[in-house]
């Protein structure tokens, strides 16, 4: 069975010193599914997302991405960390979009998008440039390829960042509060790109405060609070008719 584009997490635990940020988190994302993680700040939602592409490591639990153990191999006694090269290879199949965009300021928009295919996959430059142009056009930035990040608005930068992640042809896209650092009038253009992506069958896991967007495109919603997965289920069900008290209280505050 092809497990590309799936995420399975069982009993994920992580602590910073004494402070436990993830407590026995279970999460399943099927191929092509859109999953949203919501919750108050400090609830561990960004940490959970960052664990899934290895920006943070987990202390305990099972994490399978694209059907294989991520970052570690299971041995008789323990999970052993893989070599950096193998980890990097696993990461190439997961796209990540950051709250602060994190475009490379020393490269043009086009070079940013080309950076993955050329520098990591060692692909042909001309083919990669062609692909970068197509991707930039797809996110509505045709003709902006020669511009440097500092010359672009926040919304434009974030769309370049999405194109950069897509250039690696990932099976999964992770979004860490992609619209939180944007001016309110720029949020829509980024959400439009993400909506388009969702419509094309990309597996997406996003941490977001955009409840309207979550209700519209998400299949599943996970509500986290203080490192615990409080409620998980059908997006419209969790957002419209939450079972848990804490979920209700949170939704009342943000809506």
């Amino acid at each position: 069975m092809n497990a590309d584009g799936t995420i399975v997490a069982r009993k994920l635990c992580k602590s910073y010193g004494r402070h436990q940020v993830l407590r026995d988190i279970d999460l399943t994302v099927a191929a092509g599914e859109i999953s949203c993680i919501i919750g108050p700040s400090g609830s561990g939602k960004s940490t959970l997302l960052r664990c899934i592409n290895g920006l943070e490591t987990i202390d305990r639990g099972v994490l399978k991405v694209n059907g294989e153990d991520f970052g570690y191999v299971e041995k008789d006694d323990a999970y052993h960390a893989v070599r950096p090269k193998r980890l990097a290879q696993q990461r190439t199949r997961i796209g990540m979009v950051f709250q602060q965009f994190n475009l490379f300021p020393n490269m043009t928009a086009e070079s940013n998008v080309m950076s993955g295919p050329v520098l990591v996959k060692k692909k042909n430059r001309e083919a990669s440039r062609e692909q970068a142009r197509e991707l930039l056009a797809k996110v509505g930035l045709e003709g902006c390829g020669h511009k440097y990040p500092a010359q672009l608005s926040g919304g434009q930068q974030q769309r370049v960042a999405i194109a950069r992640a897509l250039a690696m042809e990932p099976t999964i896209m992770l979004f860490d509060e992609p619209t939180s650092a944007l001016d309110p009038e720029r949020v829509g253009e980024v959400l439009a790109v993400m909506r388009d992506l969702a419509g094309n069958g990309m597996t997406m896991l996003l941490v977001t405060h955009e409840m309207g967007f979550a209700r519209e495109v998400a299949d599943e919603v996970l509500f986290m609070d203080e490192g615990i997965a409080v409620e998980r289920g059908d997006a419209r069900e969790v957002l419209g008719n939450p079972r848990e008290k804490r979920t209700q209280a949170f939704l009342e505050r943000v809506l």
Binding site: N53, G54, Q90, I94, G95, M96, F98, G116, L119, A161
Partner: peptide, 8 residues
């Protein structure tokens, strides 16, 4: 983080 997430 951005460079690492691209697998560099």
């Amino acid at each position: 983080e951005a460079a690492e997430s691209l697998g560099m």
